[in-house]
Design a protein around this nucleic acid. Structure first.
Lengths: 138, 138
DNA sequence: CTGCCTGCAAAATCTTTGCAGAGTG
DNA sequence: CACTCTGCAAAGATTTTGCAGGCAG
């Protein structure tokens, strides 16, 4: 006797456009931003579906979730790298710095088991350096 | 004629116990955790007041807000330092590593104005290394 | 027909806010 | 009284979930 594993589609249609949309941006959009962009570009899709598929993609390891003030953002690059986060608009950008793998071997004490690290620079992105108002644009 | 500036109390009673409570912990509690701890220890206080005063303390620069998966956490130490975040329980601990001030002078390109950086190690804290269940204890 | 995917609306989670009453001087 | 601080409940913001209908094999 044989156990047959249910076949599962690699990628649903909506998941595909979501992945494409996120990969087409460098500012690590929020679910809401992706939802708006997709609908403005002719893809009828609900916010729930955006959230659902972003979560699925996260669990599959296709995208990474980033937390900060305000809504979560999503990063299409999952290999270890560092970020810059704009304090004003909340956007997050990838940086082109080498990942310091040796930091993950440090003994930090307290019995911590280190699996990785994040380095996030904070400041103002170019767009926001002249601005006075709208302290928290989404 | 003289402009009289209203005198303002340095610290309200509730704010004081909140600050004391957070300073008595090393795991950077959430508002909810502080709320529970205080009420269990005889301080009648509402969750709204905990949030309100944590926000006030943050704006005063007395505590720092930390973001991650799940609710925000609060750090009683505001001088620059690094953190360890447990992937399972979400708790955040201070690390005793020197702050690399020189990193804030790097030119990261894209016109970023750097104000500081965060280094966060991810992994499992001692409590969570043996555990199998309860993947997201608060 | 069977099962996955989606939209919609409701629920859930986390946080802020309006308002009225208590406390202080 | 004038003012701040607080609790309560409601509202807000973000994210997840139940359910029914649609579509593909």
């Amino acid at each position: 006797m044989r156990i047959i594993i249910m076949s599962r589609r690699e990628r649903t249609p909506k998941q595909h456009v979501i992945l494409e949309a996120i990969q087409g941006r460098t500012d690590h959009p929020t679910a809401e931003e992706l939802y708006r962009e997709l609908n403005e570009h002719g893809h009828a899709i609900s916010l729930a579906t955006v959230y659902r598929n972003l979560r699925a993609l996260t669990q599959e390891g296709k995208v990474r979730e980033l937390h900060g003030a305000g809504p979560d953002r999503f990063d299409p690059t999952v290999s270890p790298h560092y970020h810059f986060r704009c304090h004003r608009c909340g956007r997050i950008y990838d940086l082109d710095l080498p990942y310091r793998r040796e930091l993950d071997s440090l003994n930090l004490g307290l019995g911590f088991k280190v699996l990785g690290h994040q380095l996030i620079f904070l400041g103002l992105c170019q767009n926001c350096q002249g601005e006075k108002e709208e302290p928290w644009q989404k």
